[in-house]
């Protein structure tokens, strides 16, 4: 589904991704862990199409197409979804309005009829229950004045609405209490099927008790330096990253 090969990217002349590679197949869940500032969000943003970065080398292929060649909205319509680490507040734009426009764009791309107001409301209510989000939030402006947890749940709600093929969750679990975490994880688990895939960026093994990954990757200094199964996350939780950094630095 997704093949990232030897990706190099920089921002303001500073190289952040230094030969990143990853292969994701349908039905898989990949966890990416790693110290602060190693480029996890950079990777996520590049996959979503944020234009601030210069990709200097490498390729990203999504379902046979060159992902880097597409505008952000094309990627979204093709089924790439990024749950942002820091969702932006958008004053004056109600979630309902925004999601209606968004869902109908995605549907149009899939050759589906746009939903009318009534149909849309029905879908929205169903998905709101799904992420146990308060209906009152839907009439409010996107993320405006939301708590950290509400913002993250709103991201998962949007994911549930758009039913993406590839979802990238950038620290969606950070700062969530255990109930909110369970809701977010349940959301992912219910959406998960053999045709879609998830990349879950996290600092905490706790999330991976709920969303069981097929692979755990450690990212350090702009690339993956170690990969393993779910037990790698437990090891990282127990030992931290220093041993990995030492391993990497020794081989350089």
């Amino acid at each position: 589904m997704l093949t990232i090969d030897n990706l190099h990217a920089s921002i303001n002349g500073k190289e952040i991704l230094k030969g990143f590679g990853l292969e994701v197949k349908p039905g898989e869940v990949h966890a990416i862990m790693g110290p602060n500032g190693t480029g996890k969000s950079t990777l996520a943003n590049i996959l979503a199409g944020k234009e601030d970065y210069d990709v200097t080398d490498g390729t990203v292929t999504f379902q046979g197409k060159d992902l880097l060649d597409m505008a952000p909205e094309e990627r979204a319509r093709e089924g790439v979804f990024l749950a942002f680490q820091y969702p932006v507040e958008i004053p004056g734009v109600s979630i309902a309005n925004f999601m209606k426009a968004s869902l109908n764009e995605v549907r149009k791309h899939r050759d589906l009829q746009p939903l009318d107001a009534v149909e849309f409301l029905k879908v929205m209510k169903e998905k709101m229950r799904f992420v146990e989000i308060d209906e009152k939030l839907m009439r409010r402006a996107v993320n405006e004045g939301f708590s950290g947890g509400e913002k993250k749940r709103n991201e998962i709600f949007q994911m549930a609405m758009l039913e993406p093929t590839l979802s990238i969750l950038d620290e969606t679990d950070s700062g969530l209490d255990i109930d909110a975490l369970r809701i977010v994880a349940n959301g992912v688990n219910k959406l998960k099927n053999e045709n879609n895939a998830f990349i879950v960026i996290t600092h905490y093994q706790r999330l991976l008790d709920y969303i069981v990954p097929d692979f755990v990757h450690v990212m350090y200094n702009g690339r993956i330096v170690k990969s393993g199964g779910k037990e790698l996350a437990l090891e990282l939780e127990a030992k931290g990253y220093d041993w990995i950094k030492q391993e990497v630095d020794a081989t350089v």
Partner: peptide, 26 residues
């Protein structure tokens, strides 16, 4: 903000119109 809306499937013109509308509708 424009990027957030585009990352959800709205094209640039739609995203801008939506943000302008929100700004003014206030």
């Amino acid at each position: 903000m424009v990027f957030y809306l585009r990352a959800r499937g709205l094209d640039e013109a739609q995203a801008r119109a939506m943000l302008n509308q929100a700004f003014a509708a206030d």
